[in-house]
């Protein structure tokens, strides 16, 4: 395990949630660890217009801000039926050290129907997981 490549921090990014706080935490973590940041914007591709699918301009803005903080960031926008699986698989493949996720408050009906991406990642990931709460509201 003597690879010279820098460690990887994966940010599971979804524009709807408390994305700002999670992004800042991910950049801070990547800075401390001297890690590369992979911004993973996974969406199901189920709707023609998907609010979870980030705009190219916003993603460019994020990599720019990470660069200003001295963190090397790349963006991936994979599409698949299940977001949690995508995050777990990509983190695995990248050999990620840490996965950063945003969580938000959900109603009980929302919990019943939607399941939880965060919950599945937390339970099944091999890497460390950092959950960032919604601090905007």
């Amino acid at each position: 395990m003597s690879t010279p490549t820098p460690p990887v921090v994966v940010l599971a990014h979804s524009p709807n949630q408390s994305a700002g706080a999670a992004f800042e935490a991910a950049v801070r973590q990547a800075g401390w660890r001297g890690a590369r940041l992979v911004i993973l914007n996974a969406s199901t591709g189920e709707s023609l217009v998907d609010p979870h699918h980030a705009r190219p301009s916003d993603l460019a803005d994020m990599t720019g801000r990470a660069g200003e903080a001295g963190v090397d960031a790349v963006v991936e926008q994979p599409i698949g039926p299940d977001v949690a699986t995508i995050i777990l698989d990509r983190a695995d493949a990248l050999g990620a050290e840490l996965i950063v996720l945003a969580t938000r408050h959900r109603s009980s009906i929302g919990k019943l129907i939607m399941g939880s991406t965060a919950q599945r990642v937390l339970m099944e990931a091999d890497a460390e997981v950092l959950l960032v709460k919604d601090t905007d509201r």
């Binding site: 199901t44 189920e46 299940d82 019943l112 939607m114």
Partner: peptide, 11 residues
């Protein structure tokens, strides 16, 4: 057509 969220699909 690709809906894999079982709970939502069922509902």
């Amino acid at each position: 057509l690709g809906s894999r969220n079982w709970r939502l699909l069922l509902l």
